[in-house]
């Protein structure tokens, strides 16, 4: 068991090293990456100028719009990697023909899957830090760190829950035979529901009730709600904002923890099971990889 874990860990490390070599070998790419984060944060700052003197109500999420949206960006970047990328990465190793070679190793099915995601991890996770830094240094974002451990818990839960959904999305490549550039799970969640109802740029209380309910089915909504209450200065821990918070008799943060944990416990094992089932189906159907 320990030997297996050591082997899987060593392989994850060598995957990450390979992806880092590839990522860093294009210097222009690295510069563009840096500027991209800077410009995104700048756009948020410009938007915040519009709202500075308005009577728009961000309650219960404090009073700093830049912080509000920078946190939205952070969850968006994580989601972009964990939810949006697995399908594309699995497609990459299918069309590149390497899935067979990864399986001809002592590794579990999941390690190559995690390993090939490192390119996005390298690309997207540091954006979270950079966004927070740019927001704080250049554009007046302020962060409350009194509840940092709780904030990190929500960060961990959104990482795991989006990864679970990402694996469900990736499994559709083999399970449902979606062999093109996109598939419905990723499109529906990442491009439609997250974009519209997660509240990355605005509090979802401004949305019609039906969209607020729709937003209640994705983990992003609860992570953003909790992170903003905890980190945006002036965040309110008691005022209920999300539909589920009104329905359950708990404090908002507790509801967020319950909802996110429940989602994680459902989608992560489901994602693992579906991905492994997809590989086994491909072994039966002969669609594991494509040579020539």
């Amino acid at each position: 068991m320990m030997q297996q874990l050591r082997r899987e860990w060593a392989s994850l490390m060598v995957f990450s090293k390979r992806e880092y070599i590839i990522w860093s070998s294009y210097r222009v790419n690295a510069w563009m990456w840096f500027l991209d984060v800077l410009f995104n944060t700048t756009i948020v700052f410009m938007l915040s100028l519009l709202t500075r003197d308005s009577t728009l109500d961000f309650a219960p999420y404090g009073n700093n719009y830049v912080t509000f949206v920078v946190l939205g960006f952070c969850v968006h970047y994580i989601s972009w990697t964990n939810l949006g990328d697995p399908f594309r990465r699995v497609a990459r190793i299918y069309w590149g023909g390497t899935m067979d070679l990864y399986l001809l190793s002592p590794l579990s099915y999941l390690t190559p899957f995690m390993g090939i995601m490192f390119r996005s991890v390298i690309d997207d996770y540091p954006r979270v830090i950079l966004s927070l830094l740019f927001g704080g240094i250049f554009f007046g974002a302020a962060y409350s760190v009194n509840q940092l451990p709780l904030g990190l818990l929500f960060l961990a839960l959104i990482l795991l829950s989006t990864l679970g959904i990402g694996m469900i999305s990736a499994s559709s490549f083999y399970l449902l035979n979606f062999k093109q550039n996109t598939e419905p799970v990723r499109f529906l969640l990442q491009d439609v529901i997250v974009a519209l109802a997660a509240g990355i740029y605005y509090p979802i209380t401004v949305l019609p009730e039906s969209l607020q309910i729709l937003g209640g089915f994705i983990p992003h909504t609860y992570a953003l709600d909790a992170l903003r209450r905890l980190i945006v200065p002036g965040g309110d821990f008691t005022t209920k904002a999300l539909p589920l918070q009104h329905w359950l008799p708990f404090a908002p943060i507790t509801t967020d923890i319950v909802a996110l944990t429940a989602m994680t416990l459902v989608v992560l094992p489901l994602g693992v099971w579906m991905y492994v089932s997809g590989i086994e189906k491909a072994r039966r159907k002969g669609t594991l990889t494509r040579w020539q």
Binding site: R7, A10, S11, M13, V14, K17, R18, L101, Y102, S105, P106, L107, P112
Partner: peptide
């Protein structure tokens, strides 16, 4: 080769 040496344990 270094990459695959680790993958193949």
């Amino acid at each position: 080769l270094e990459f695959w040496a680790v993958v193949y344990d």
